[in-house]
Design a protein around this nucleic acid. Structure first.
Length: 419
RNA sequence: GCGGCCGUAGCUUAAUGGUAAAGCACUCGGUUGUGGUCCGAGAGCAUGCGGGUUCGAGUCCCGUCGGUCGCCCCA
């Protein structure tokens, strides 16, 4: 077929098996989040661009080169959301949610957009499932959010999860540390790579993330040694809670998350992928974000995981998602039979037994073939004779044995057989 | 945004520069109302798109669009 159109680069249609994985993740996640007291939220896929540039940070790559930003016909500068947190905090402020009993706990499963060069597990439209707790914060909230995500991923069957964790301190600590780090980097600048020389000025913390400048990092000052006693105490508590919950973690004093709004606890989830390890997602505290968006200073913590990456990992690990498939197929011949089948179909639906059919197909052969492809356990056949006598042939698809039952008892009998 | 590799049917792959093939999947048959296995047949708008070299391009060259991997960054 000659194809005139393709989906935009880095954006994909989700259907078939991929959709089933999405549904599985959505189902496990929303059930888990709900039991921990989180409520679902949906917000617009675009916002005033400032919500992101102020919240995420003017000089982050996300804002500088990855945001889908454009002007509307009315002249508003808007942007497709590159991440979830900033928009949810905007909603929190807009709807005066601080007047409600705190904290507000939200969960979401939604698409996001970043203009980047696509790669496996990295797309221009990608999905995340995430949690935000706003209005009351502290170590216990951090630990709980990590626990929910950990449990979701475990329940999905992902093994060998690793959590790397660090504390960046509150914004004051962070600023102080940046000064100390800058001083050190300036001294070592001759041995820094070209990228890091640039980073040194704009975003010195990111140097700690560099894979090339390992030597320089080794003797670099570490954030945890420079944060204030209160922040250090908070961090220690997070770690204690995680130990209490038996959630394994690794301290990574070089872990720095890219977005400006993070404070204190930051973490990332990893799992072994096909080559090396794969980052599934991460999160952290962002006590300063609400203020950046014009609200009061509000404690908050959140985390988000990449759906496509989770699927990738599930597939790598050979984790299958089982859809609930109908175990019964109804086949019909003749108009009268069709009418009886429609009625029978409703009876099964009321009995909550999923049934499939192919009423549009008239040949029994075709219908049997379809039943076979659907791998049903039993096929009910109603032909002209059966329809007239109010009977149904029940065929066991594995053994090929058939019996004739009256229409009245068939639902009850099938229920028995399926047990 | 930069660099490497890749692009033939729904899928997996063939085709020393010389008629674009096969398997799987699909559809229909193998007597009236019975699936899978088997046998037979059929169908398929396939060389991503656009240029160039050539008597002749799936094959060589350029561009472009996608994909993929790395960088950057991150989910």
């Amino acid at each position: 077929m000659s194809k005139s159109f393709q989906s935009p680069s880095g954006m994909h249609d989700v259907f078939g098996e991929q959709y089933d994985y999405f549904e599985k993740i959505r189902e496990v996640f929303s059930r888990m989040a709900t039991t921990y007291g989180f409520e679902g939220i949906e917000i617009p896929i675009m916002e005033n661009a400032k919500v992101f540039s102020r919240g995420v940070g003017e000089h982050t790559d996300i804002i500088e080169k990855e945001m889908y930003a454009f002007k509307t016909k009315g002249g508003d500068q808007v942007a497709l959301r590159p991440e979830g947190t900033a928009g949810i905090v905007r909603a929190y402020i807009e709807h005066n949610l601080y007047t409600k009993s705190q904290p507000i706990k939200f969960f979401y499963f939604a698409p996001f957009f970043r203009y980047e060069r696509p790669q496996a597990g990295r797309y221009r439209q990608f999905w995340q499932f995430g949690l935000e707790t706003i209005g009351k914060g502290g170590p216990v909230v951090d630990a709980q959010i990590i626990a929910v995500m950990y449990n979701v991923l475990r329940e999905l069957g992902i093994k060998d999860l690793m959590i790397e964790i660090n504390s960046m301190g509150e914004s004051k600590c962070r600023e102080d540390f940046e000064k100390v780090l800058k001083k050190y980097l300036r001294k070592e600048s001759s041995s820094l790579c070209a990228d890091c020389k640039r980073r040194m000025k704009k975003n010195p913390l990111r140097v700690l993330d560099c894979k090339r400048c390992i030597k320089v990092k080794e003797s670099a000052p570490q954030i945890v040694d420079h944060i204030c006693p209160k922040c250090r105490e908070d961090f220690k508590k997070v770690l204690e809670y995680l130990e209490e919950l038996k959630i394994p973690y690794d301290l990574n004093s070089f872990l720095v998350r890219g977005l400006d709004y993070y404070t204190n606890t930051v973490y990332e989830f990893f799992a072994p992928g096909e080559e090396g390890r794969l980052a599934l997602g991460g999160g952290g505290r962002y006590d300063g974000l609400a203020k950046l968006l014009g609200g009061e200073e509000t404690p908050a913590t959140g985390a988000a995981m990449g759906v496509e990456r989770t699927v990738l990992l599930m597939k790598n690990d050979g984790i299958k998602v089982e859809k609930e498939k109908p175990k019964i197929f109804i086949a019909q011949l003749s108009d009268l039979a069709k009418r009886k089948c429609l009625k029978l179909f409703e009876e099964f639906r009321e009995a909550k037994i999923p049934v499939s059919e192919s009423f549009g197909q008239d040949s029994l052969k075709g219908q049997m073939s379809k039943a076979n492809k659907m791998k049903v356990d039993y096929t009910l056949i109603i032909g002209e004779e059966e329809a007239a006598e109010d009977r149904v042939i029940v065929r066991d698809m594995e053994s090929g044995q058939q019996e004739s039952l009256s229409t009245k008892e068939v639902v009850k009998e099938i229920k028995k057989k399926l047990k």
